Computed example of a mutant assay.
Amino acid sequence: MKNANDPYNGILNLMNKMTCNGLQATAAIGEILSVPPNIAIGYNGMTITSQYLWIDEYWLQGHTRHAKGHIVSATQNRAGGGGEAAYASHNHDIDNDYSDSIIYTDTWHVGDKVLMIPICGQDRKTAEQFAVLCKLKRLDGN
């Protein structure tokens, strides 16, 4: 009979703990059933609603992104006018700061496929919520 100090028993217990902690549901593909703000996603025969979803904010309609920077370049050479020297082929230097805003207005459609990553609960096995990261498209048309 083996006792509690048996090294093999300790290794088996450690492997069991590692296996239980490592079991997690994997990424899956969901289908948009209704769009935000009352989003619903079909997943594995269930309808998942907003209280169980974490949505990538870049995919929310009305999300605004701001960009700014500095551009150094030049226009392409171009001639103009009636052949006068003042209108000979020339370019213009560009050395300017810029800023821009992009507002997303058309992001989700019913039927879109999305990547869903389960967020496991404290038992590290049960998916309690999902992160929705991006819209997916197959290039073969399926």
Rank of each mutant, 00 (worst) to 15 (best):
T19S: 10
Q76N: 02
S101F: 15
V72E: 06
L133A: 09
P118Q: 06
M46W: 11
G141P: 00
E57W: 00
D112N: 12
V110Y: 06
G83M: 02
A28G: 15
G42L: 05
W108D: 09
C20N: 13
K125Q: 11
R124L: 07
K135I: 15
G141Y: 02
K135Q: 12
V132K: 04
S99H: 15
K113M: 10
N5Q: 13
I103Q: 12
T26R: 10
S89D: 08
Q61S: 04
N5Y: 13
N5W: 12
A85C: 06
S99G: 10
I103D: 05
W108E: 09
L133R: 13
E128Q: 14
P7R: 05
G141N: 02
T107K: 10
A131D: 08
K125H: 11
Q129W: 11
N91V: 01
T47M: 10
H109D: 12
Q76T: 04
I119S: 10
G62K: 01
G42A: 10
P37G: 04
N21Y: 05
D97R: 11
W59Y: 06
Y52F: 02
V35E: 13
I48R: 01
T49D: 06
D6I: 02
K125P: 02
L14K: 11
I29K: 08
W108R: 06
H63S: 00
A25S: 15
